[in-house]
Simulated assay, not measured.
Amino acid sequence: MSHPPESAQPGRRGRAAVWARRTVLGALLVASLVLGGTAFRVWQVALVDQRHSADMIVVLGAAQYNGDPSPVLRGRLEHALELYRDGRSEHIVTVGGNQRGDNYTEAQASRIWLVEHGVPERDVFEAEFGSDTLRSIRAVSELAGRHDWNSALIVSDPWHSWRCRTMAEDQGLRAMVSPTRSGPTGEVRTAYILREAAAMLFYRVMHASADITGYGLD
């Protein structure tokens, strides 16, 4: 049995190495395009304000300190209050659990703030479960089912809007977003958009939440 000359062996190894490098570079290029396209969609939806009428206005939770909403949460509550006063819905759903040792949940702190600012207690509903976005949206969906509500106007931060809306739609709700106009800016904004895009891709593939913390946002 004849064998190729030894001089041919490095050529074959070299060609294999070239194809391996091309495969890796191609995979990296595809991954970059997918992440970039997803990040663009995060940015695109962040600019949308779908403040149409809905069965409920949903305020996604953020940090609270012994019943006092953090600046991020207060911004969401002020926006939800504006929507409520504009007649976009007769019901506001506050969302979010608590950390160990907390006296209040995020939902409770939000409800207290809204009532103190003139919203009748009968119009505010709490969904106190959910330590991440997906669990929060599922809690909202369960509450909506009990009240025969089908549509939601979701209030969160701009860069969080697409993922919130997608998760709510996957739970069977007709979901719209009306984001606050606060949130990270500059380099921090870019980093947050990319991380939010990665979280969205994770959700698409795994159907699970990969929530982002940092920059004062949940």
Rank of each mutant, 00 (worst) to 15 (best):
P4T: 04
P158D: 01
D211T: 06
M206G: 03
I212E: 04
G14F: 14
R135E: 15
A107M: 02
V188S: 13
L28R: 02
Y84Q: 02
L173D: 08
E116F: 03
L60S: 02
H91T: 10
R195L: 01
F202M: 08
V42E: 00
Q50K: 08
E121R: 13
G214N: 09
P184W: 07
I212S: 08
A144C: 13
I212A: 02
V155Q: 02
I193D: 02
A168L: 02
Q50R: 15
T23N: 07
H79N: 14
S209Y: 08
V72F: 03
P71A: 09
P5T: 06
T133Q: 13
I137F: 07
H147Q: 15
W43L: 09
E90G: 06
G14K: 10
T180A: 06
H79K: 12
D211I: 08
R174T: 12
N66T: 07
R22Q: 14
S89W: 00
Q171F: 09
D86T: 09
Y192E: 05
I212T: 13
A168P: 04
V42P: 03
V95L: 03
V205A: 11
V59S: 07
G96F: 04
P4S: 11
A198Q: 09
W149M: 10
L143W: 12
R12P: 00
W162M: 08
D157F: 03
S151N: 13
I57H: 04
A127R: 06
V59H: 10
D132A: 07
A191N: 12
H52N: 00
R100F: 14
V119K: 09
S141C: 12
E6D: 15
G118N: 05
T23M: 10
D157C: 02
M56I: 14
P184D: 06
L29D: 01
D132P: 06
R138S: 05
G36P: 02
N150C: 09
V93L: 14
V59A: 12
V155H: 03
W113D: 01
G37E: 06
L83T: 01
S182R: 03
V58A: 10
I137V: 15
V205G: 03
P120S: 06
I137Y: 05
P4A: 11
D170P: 00
H3S: 07
S2D: 11
M200E: 02
R41F: 08
R51G: 11
D123L: 04
F125M: 13
N103W: 03
H117D: 10
R138L: 15
N150R: 15
P5R: 12
W19H: 12
G14E: 13
N103Q: 14
P4I: 12
